[in-house]
Design a protein around this nucleic acid. Structure first.
Ligand SMILES: [Mn+2]
Ligand SMILES: [Mn+2]
Ligand SMILES: [Zn+2]
Ligand SMILES: [Zn+2]
Lengths: 152, 152
DNA sequence: GGTATGTTTGCGAACGATTTGCATTATGAT
DNA sequence: ATCATAATGCAAATCGTTCGCAAACATACC
């Protein structure tokens, strides 16, 4: 019954409350990039006495503890994913918000080289690509389910 | 006396008000990536009867007219630069916020290739690198002037 | 140059995402 | 079971940004 993230939290010595357990479970079961409202929505299904403020606080806690990572996908809100996933970036289908994950060693190497040539050591970076499927010019299925992220 | 951006606005047939002239001048003279508050601060020096709301509205107008471009550098606010500059990305010095511009044809090509392999046509993309100078481990001059952007 | 018409402005209020103060409740260690 | 400390819920505050509305303005027309 203890979720993957709950175990991680215990390892890190975080005090485990009921709401933290539920949020950990929600995040463990998520295979997409939910924002805080979405996490709250899913958490409330499991236990209705969880406030949005607690979700905000817990997300920050888990982020600080490096259990989850914030992803900025360009819409106004913060989205999250498990930190244990391999490093990757996101291609956002602008027709419907669907997110495709990808990794590229060449890209990582190139970015290192660019920074080095500018005399810098990289401490972080961000890359997103926005696109539409090849050969799709209309805005078909503009209302399909969103962010069925595919694990990298 | 008519600034570069003011000329552009006239070409596009925008109604030229006093405040739009001033904001155009401020943006024409900027060689960095000011946010709206900063544009307002600079505008007020030239003519004190310019409200922040008008700056917000004018930035959006100029962005829609493709006279300026919004840059998201990861701090909470929107920053802007002239749209006429060549395509480039930003390396942010995390010690002091200084911004270094760079362009990389290899990077652009690679990104195209990645998207194509995923079956997508790119409609936009974003990349920023955060770093500290090679051989700088302390946080020296953490309060120097910020964002002396170097034209690409 | 005056005048009508539609735009733009300034102000403050509204906004959406996130954080925070504070009184209440729960956790984990005795 | 007790207790000190940390976490929660709620509402109010914050930050960047947008919006409604009445007043001021730009431009086209006489
Ligand atoms: Mn991801
Ligand atoms: Mn730039
Ligand atoms: Zn990367
Ligand atoms: Zn690029």
């Amino acid at each position: 019954m203890t979720s993957r993230l709950e175990a991680l939290c215990l390892e890190k010595g975080l005090k485990m409350t009921g709401q933290r357990r539920v949020i950990s479970q929600v995040l463990s079961e998520a295979d997409d990039h939910p924002d805080v409202e979405e996490v709250h929505r899913r958490a409330v299904v499991i236990d209705p006495r969880i406030s949005i403020a607690t979700v905000y606080r817990t997300m920050r806690l888990l982020e600080d503890a490096q259990v989850i990572e914030k992803v900025d996908l360009g819409d106004g809100r913060a989205r999250y994913e498990e930190a244990s996933t391999d490093h990757h970036h996101h291609l956002i289908d602008t027709r419907n918000g669907r997110i495709i994950e990808f990794a590229s060693p060449e890209l990582e190497a190139l970015k290192e080289r660019i920074a080095r040539e500018l005399g810098y050591r990289i401490v972080g970076h961000r890359l997103e690509i926005y696109g539409i499927p090849l050969g799709a010019d209309g805005n078909d299925d503009a209302d399909e389910p969103v962010d069925k992220g595919v694990p990298v």
